[in-house]
Nucleic acid binder design. Structure first.
Length: 884
RNA sequence: GCCCAGUUGGCGCAGUGGUAGCGCGUUCCCUUGACAUGGGAAAGGUCAUAGGUUCAAAUCCUAUACUGGGCACCA
């Protein structure tokens, strides 16, 4: 027996066990089959999954299950990313609590600990994906740093090297002082910060006034190798070619001219520090200036800083400013907002630093990616991301791929004195030492779709599963990851690694703020699953996952989804209660229904059902789970439960045997069809219910997925039935509304009399529906007169009189109707404007004109009947005969 | 600075030319054998502003304002 309220826990664990026992997610390469393939965006092994992962993976699971339901082979590859800097930072924090430093531990021991941590973390993450219901092919689990992927990374590096696309050089790179490594340009974030603009006086070497430079970073002055002014700037012309002296260290630098300098900014004189500023670096290149490092990789000032050597950047600035002030070299200090670059992993301020790094040339790799986008081999949904994606590729710069950390793929280059460097996975022999750096974690991520199927080996899997279909991810890694996968895939294989990228939004807190541990607004998906069930969490996220849009996540929405899950459960309970304990042989079949026998509600719900199934599947084809969820939610709750089931109740209690069978057939068929359509969104409860219902629809598939979507049986589309049912609903609502206004509870059955042009038809064809839904004891034709003491409800083509002795206040009833009348009249006026507009009649399409005329007639007829009724009431009880 | 998106009832969001919808919340009524994680009824919006196109605009166009994002930045 089903419980009154759905309890997700036992159902989830049982269903999970049965899916795994059947290895439902397993997909093997089969000759001649082209499966639908997704590779998971591998979560970093930095801890547990967050709510964004829950959204990301729910969406993928929806697409996977949807395609499986449609009959394709599907393959979804699980795995994790080693996560480079991010993961190393997690470990370093851990070590800090133990008061250990990785340098004390040593590289070997540190990596051993990382391996242990990774194993634990992978177990956690994969376990969470299981609990989410993700139908991954568990036997394909991959890791960006396992042996196979290591092989792919080496092969890719070697190939790029051989093609001349990898080089090593001393460049100005983004250096994170805290992480102790270089970063690529897209790993740097910018934020506006308040700071100061310092005006500093540089004396002339030969003695004399000199000039004043403006800078936000006085601590870099010891790296200055020139002062630049704009060639058109009259103010400083006399200084050009002279030499000025850097304070405190007395080194002299030349005053040069460069068009880059803006003369409105600051003093119009720019101190040039090629080793610590990108623009200064470029000026330095133009003028052949030396680059002097004033700040080291540790963030401390170097020997070049003379007396300030060893101070941190921050300390040094303070000290220098104080000293400048004391020696009255600080001419001005003004407030200044500037864009500060920060590390995307730890948030500390980036130091542009001149250092020896490895780079991948990008422009040749970007071209095929642009072509793939232009000719449609690769599409982004929603397509408004295509422009930023294209722009990024067009203005791409070389990619710094070396990282000065330990956790990652070691750069496979070996050095020996007096020899050319050698690219090799193993040591080329004694005396060779390997490059100490590791590759950017995104280097291996970029190879992910290739590498998970065994590339560069020519495996059967690769032949069958590559390229993949859909990549589901967030817009924040569009360049970092998506673009690079496209570039690498196209470079090594010639095909786009996935034909479409579906971009979802970020899950934020309910006020729209980004979730973060420090703000304390993080939602734990596991907790949500505990409280409301996995289906509820998934459905909640999916209903909000409109293409590309961020989600303001409110726990209330999970409550709502939980209630919907419960509604599904209870509608099943109702249907099951009205079915025999033994299903008929072959089950209840829609094909067996005689079309001519079906009554209005049947024809209506079947028509709606067919439209809903098509709409839901179409939405999923269009990568829009939110639209599918909305369609199915509305149908199940507002149409199937609130109207069809309510009508079915009287028929199931009635004595007409064939009618009962028809009702049972439609109930169970539509319920099964709808829950199958819901299955990609909420796999657990739908699987559970399917188990209980499948015999009643004559099916024996062990799982929803293996059975596939439910065919609607035949063509049920019926606009006439939908229109007629809409009239029934509006009549029912009119009576219910009347009862509510007069405080006549639905529990109390009342009689009603019907008048109006359509009254005869209404009684004959809809009488039973009205009686059932508006709780009427009887429904009779009004025999010419309005019954005394009755309230009036005016619906389309029909007027209902409900005698309510003692309840009706004569004047109030009249007021109520007058209010209805004025509203009805304003409706008429609106439509009349349109109908009487000559331009409209002349230019609008005929269908529109016909429709407007019909609406006009209906509205006018309603007004007429309301007027009549009001007149009746004004003339006293029942004294005037209504027109029938 | 350039580009993109958003601006719809208290909150969160649908809605790509024909008299504005959903969820949550609010008010009133109802514990009637699927479900109070429920049912019924109702209140609440001149669809950011100003123009334009059109017989007809939330929807198309143009400007403006605000919000968010991407890219590029003047030290």
């Amino acid at each position: 027996m089903m419980e009154k309220n759905y309890d997700p826990k036992p159902v989830e664990s049982a269903r999970l066990a049965s899916w795994e026992a059947a290895a439902l997610g397993r997909c093997q390469a089969r000759e001649g089959r082209k499966p639908y393939v997704i590779v998971i965006p591998p979560p970093n092994v930095t801890g547990a999954l967050h709510i964004g992962h829950a959204l990301n993976n729910s969406m993928q699971d929806v697409f996977i299950r949807h395609h499986r339901m449609k009959g394709s082979d599907v393959c979804w590859v699980p795995g994790c990313d080693h996560g480079g800097i991010a993961t190393q930072n997690v470990m370093e924090k851990q070590l800090k609590t133990e008061k250990v430093d990785r340098h004390v531990l040593g590289r070997e021991a540190f990596l051993a600990r990382m391996q242990t941590w990774t194993r634990e973390c992978k177990t956690t993450i994969l376990g969470q994906l299981r609990r989410l219901g993700c139908m991954l092919d568990w036997e394909r689990e991959a890791f960006t740093m396992d042996e196979e992927r290591g092989h792919a990374v080496f092969f890719a590096f070697k190939t790029l090297w051989e093609r001349g696309l990898i080089y090593r050089g001393e460049r100005l790179v983004n250096w994170c002082v805290r992480c102790g490594t270089a970063l690529s340009d897209i790993e740097v974030e910018r934020e506006e910060r308040k700071g100061n603009l310092y005006h500093i006086h540089y004396r002339l070497e030969s003695g004399g006034e000199g000039l004043v430079v403006a800078t936000t970073r006085p601590e870099t002055m010891f790296g200055d190798t020139a002062v630049a002014v704009n060639p058109k700037d009259e103010r400083w012309r006399h200084m050009v070619g002279k030499k000025v002296v850097i304070p405190f260290i007395g080194r002299a630098v030349a005053v040069i001219e460069d068009g880059y300098v803006e003369f409105e900014f600051g003093t119009g004189a720019l101190k040039v520090t090629p080793a610590h500023d990108q623009n200064d670096w470029e000026i330095g290149q133009r003028h052949g200036l030396a680059a002097i490092k004033a700040i080291g990789p540790d963030g401390k000032l170097t020997e070049a800083a003379g007396p300030y050597r060893g101070l941190s950047r921050e300390k040094a600035r303070e000290q220098i400013v104080a000293d400048l002030e004391a020696s009255s070299l600080l001419r001005k200090k003004e407030d200044h907002k500037s864009a500060v670059q920060t590390c995307y992993r730890c948030g500390s301020v980036i130091e542009p630093l001149l250092s020896l790094q490895w780079f991948v040339k990008q422009s040749d790799l970007a071209k095929p990616a642009l072509r793939a986008l232009d000719d449609g081999r690769f599409k982004i949904y929603p397509d408004n991301w295509e422009k930023p994606y294209r722009d990024w590729l067009l203005s791409i710069k070389d990619w710094c791929v070396s990282r000065q950390i330990w956790w990652g793929h070691r750069i496979p280059v070996w050095y020996k004195d007096g020899e050319q460097p050698v690219v090799s996975q193993e040591s080329p022999g004694s005396g060779w030492r390997q490059d100490a750096d590791v590759l950017d974690t995104w280097f291996s991520s970029a190879l992910w779709p290739l590498a998970v199927f065994g590339w560069p080996e020519k495996t059967k899997d690769f032949a069958c599963f590559y390229p993949t279909a859909t990549l589901v991810t967030g817009y924040e890694i569009l360049y970092l990851w998506v673009a690079r996968m496209q570039m690498m895939g196209l470079a090594f294989d010639g095909r786009a690694p996935f034909s479409s990228a579906v971009i979802h939004g970020t899950v934020r807190d309910k006020s729209g703020k980004k979730m973060s541990k420090s703000l304390g607004n993080v939602i734990d998906p596991l907790l949500m699953m505990e409280k409301y069930g996995t289906d509820a969490l998934r459905f909640s996220l999916l209903t909000q996952a409109h293409p590309g849009k961020d989600i303001a996540f409110d726990e209330q929405s999970v409550v709502g989804a939980r209630n919907f899950v419960n509604k599904l459960w209870n509608s099943t309970r109702f249907v099951l209660m009205n079915l025999p304990s033994e299903p008929p042989t072959g089950g209840y079949r829609l094909e067996a229904l005689s079309h001519s026998r079906l009554e209005l509600s049947d024809r209506w719900i079947l028509s709606r059902y067919q439209a809903v199934l098509a709409g839901a599947a179409g939405s999923l084809d269009a990568h829009d789970p939110a639209a599918a969820a909305e369609i199915l939610y509305g149908f199940l709750w507002d149409e199937f439960c609130d109207w069809y089931i309510e009508l079915a109740k009287t028929r199931l209690l009635g004595s007409e045997a064939q009618g009962k069978e028809e009702t049972r057939t439609i109930l169970v068929q539509i319920l099964v069809g709808t829950l199958k359509a819901l299955h990609p969104l909420m796999p657990f409860i739908t699987e559970e219910i399917y188990g209980a219902l499948k015999a009643y629809v004559g099916e024996s598939a062990p799982f929803v997925l293996t059975g596939g979507y439910h065919p609607p049986g035949r063509e049920w589309f019926n606009p006439e039935a939908e229109a007629e049912m809409a009239r029934v609903m509006s009549a029912v609502t009119a009576i219910r509304s009347l009862r509510s206004q007069l405080n006549v509870p639905l529990g109390l059955k009342v009689s009603a009399f019907v008048a109006g042009p359509d009254s005869r038809m209404i009684i004959e064809k809809h009488g039973a529906y009205l009686a059932a839904l508006a709780k009427l004891a009887e429904l009779k034709a009004s025999l010419g007169a309005r019954p005394p003491h009755s309230a009036t409800a005016v619906s389309e083509g029909v007027t209902f009189f409900i005698p309510l002795e003692g309840v009706i206040d004569f004047d109030k009833e009249r007021q109520r109707l007058v209010k209805d009348l004025s509203k009805a009249e304003s409706d008429v006026a609106k439509i009349e404007m349109k109908v009487k507009n000559a331009d409209f009649i002349a230019k609008a399409p005929q269908t529109q004109i016909d429709e407007a005329h019909a609406q006009h007639a209906v509205a006018r007829e309603r007004v007429a009947r309301l007027k009549e009724t009001v007149a009746l009431l004004s003339g006293g009880e029942g004294s005037i005969r209504p027109r029938v």
